[in-house]
């Protein structure tokens, strides 16, 4: 039997008003020195592994950076995450929300066709695998299956490079792939290497 006190509608309206007031409090924040930064790529994997198990995955842009902080501390308790796992996921969400300030993978933003020295396979394993999976079929609902003959890899390389460079949201996917997969240190040469690796590994 439910144990709840009957109260007048007036009390309910008062409490509801308080809710609305709390929700409308302005929080013009830009950056926080807490919690400590986590690992973006690891956060992407942990986000993919945990959040969709209980509820529809919410995209990074559905909340502000400061709202993600309270939300992730709340979810740390609900999902039984460690503090580090929570910080990783928070870094991933904030980084995806605002790639220019939140991506922690490396500090510099690289351009040009020179490469970082990593192979396409190395970059895929470090940056892409969290969402696209080791088999290229995608580990999240809405993430494209690279192994399909008429799938994403059938598009021209110029289109793929544009999507990887600028970010892209597939139909049905809960959130967009962040620019450069969230790793701003990748150069155009690195991205071309990754695309070449995708064709070799998963293409027909």
């Amino acid at each position: 039997m439910k144990h709840a006190k009957q109260s007048k509608l007036k009390i309910g309206l008062t409490l509801a008003s308080l809710s609305l007031i709390a929700g409308m409090l302005p929080v013009p924040v830009q950056a926080f020195d807490y919690p400590a930064p986590g690992d973006f790529a690891q956060g992407a994997k942990e986000w993919a592994d945990n959040c969709g198990r209980c509820h529809n995955i919410r995209g990074a842009k559905e909340l502000r950076d400061d709202q993600w902080i309270t939300t992730m501390f709340h979810m740390r308790l609900r999902a039984g995450l460690t503090g580090q796992e929570m910080r990783n996921i928070l870094t991933f969400l904030q980084g995806s929300n605002n790639p220019s300030t939140g991506v922690i993978v490396k500090t510099s933003t690289a351009t040009g066709s020179a490469t970082s020295g990593l192979s396409g396979k190395d970059i895929y394993s470090q940056t892409c695998i969290a969402c696209h999976g080791a088999d290229g079929k995608g580990v999240l609902p809405g993430v494209p299956d690279f192994t399909r003959k008429d799938g994403r890899l059938s598009k021209p390389d110029a289109t793929l490079l544009k999507h990887v460079t600028e970010g892209f949201q597939s139909p049905g996917s809960p959130m967009a792939m962040p620019p450069k997969g969230g790793n701003s240190s990748l150069t155009e040469g690195d991205l071309k290497n990754v695309i070449e690796y995708l064709h070799q590994e998963f293409g027909s």
Binding site: A4, K5, Q6, S7, L15, S19, Y34, F73, H74
Partner: peptide, 22 residues
């Protein structure tokens, strides 16, 4: 990252029109 207070209220309208709060 030290402490959080979290609380959920629940408002529910009964069949007779009264509102339950808990």
């Amino acid at each position: 990252d030290l402490v959080m207070l979290e609380s959920e209220l629940e408002f529910e309208v009964e069949d007779d029109g009264n509102t339950n709060t808990s």
